[in-house]
Computed example of a mutant assay.
Amino acid sequence: MENLEEARLPQRAYVIIKHAIRNLIFLPRTILEREVAEILDMSRTPVREALVRLENDEALQLIPRRGFYVEPIEKNDLSDIYQLSATLDGLAIELAAKQINNEESAN
């Protein structure tokens, strides 16, 4: 069971860091994987995996021997993010309502 939890750590780190970037908790500046690992109370390996994945998503830029630079979020990007988030929230509500209706029909 412990190995399964360890396998989920990079995904968990990815989601947390991405959320922190989008919500401007991590402002545009250089961050070190050591610092992030301490904040998340994780080892550096899953944090490094998450940071590399975020670099591939263009949320971060690797600066050799310095760390990762948090890319600034452009105003247009924020608008797109919030529109997508609102759409996904609406879809989630719709799916949840259908699920509830299906469960009530089954009873």
Rank of each mutant, 00 (worst) to 15 (best):
L91C: 07
N23K: 11
G67N: 02
R8Q: 12
R53S: 06
L60H: 00
N56F: 07
T30K: 14
Q99I: 09
V47R: 00
R66A: 05
L27V: 13
A7T: 15
E35G: 12
N107R: 13
L32K: 07
A86I: 05
P28T: 01
I100M: 02
E38M: 12
K18G: 10
L62Y: 14
L95I: 09
A59T: 05
T30H: 14
I93V: 07
E38N: 15
Q83P: 02
L78Q: 09
A86R: 07
A92H: 09
L40V: 08
L32V: 11
A13G: 02
R12D: 08
L54G: 00
D77G: 08
E5Y: 11
Q11A: 10
I21P: 02
E94Y: 03
L4Q: 15
L60E: 01
K98P: 05
A106H: 06
L40Q: 07
K98G: 05
E103I: 13
I73G: 02
N102D: 09
P72E: 01
I63N: 05
E55S: 10
K75N: 09
R12P: 09
D80C: 09
N107Q: 14
F26M: 01
V47A: 01
K18Q: 14
N23H: 14
E5T: 11
L9D: 01
A7K: 13
E5G: 10
L40P: 06
K98H: 11
E33L: 11
I93E: 08
N102K: 07
A37D: 09
N23C: 10
N101K: 09
R29E: 07
S85E: 06
Y82S: 01
E74A: 05
Q11C: 10
L32H: 10
E33D: 15
Y14W: 00
L24W: 15
S79H: 11
